[in-house]
Amino acid sequence: MKFGVVVFPGSNCDDDMIHVLGDVMKSEVVKVWHKDTGLPGFNTSDCIVLPGGFAYGDYLRCGALAGLSPIMSAVKDFAAKGGMVVGICNGFQVLCEAGLLPGVLLANSSQKFICKNIHLKIENNETPFTRLTSKGDVLKIPIAHAEGRYYADENILGQLEMNNQVLFRYCSPTGEVADEYNPNGASRNIAGICNEGRNVFGMMPHPERASEEILGNTDGRILFESLLNHVLESA
């Protein structure tokens, strides 16, 4: 299994992601440039990662212009064939703007950039991205964003819930989902979702910042381990 990490002008978590996937998870990982028009060398057991940052300066709306970039056409084709795509933070915003995931990320209700550890409750562990977790598990993972308020209309939210597409909700350290543990005002405390096909995943928190002992937190590792385990089991 190979990972491709897309580098947009303004990406700033690309090297962190490459470090975790390559040095920590010992996987093959390459950079993919935003102007590339295809993904040669990748097949459907591989995974494309859209990292955090401020792609295209987040001009117009976060993720909007990155969603139009040449590589995103290739990523859409890749996802349509069943390839796995993961968007972290700005990458999640790009996936929403590109139409690969429903909804949108709005400015935090506090109008502040928030950088801190939060807790996530696992809502669905039957996806390639969460398969080694258990439903109800709580992960401590940091967020760092100004525009992380997940929003979709009631109709879309209903569909997400019905199809079990909500992967993570903001919660207390013991797993209680309540307004007081919602850092950004996200609809229904949603922190991460997947598409109906279970091969496109987006989340605002940064698991790549919580994958090493030396950083004091390894809760994020299980998500990368899940992806690798999924490919191993499906082989």
């Binding site: 117009l60 709306r61 949108v104 929003y151």
Partner: peptide, 8 residues
């Protein structure tokens, strides 16, 4: 297609 996002 670009300047506005109909969701928001």
């Amino acid at each position: 297609k670009v300047l506005s996002n109909p969701i928001m």
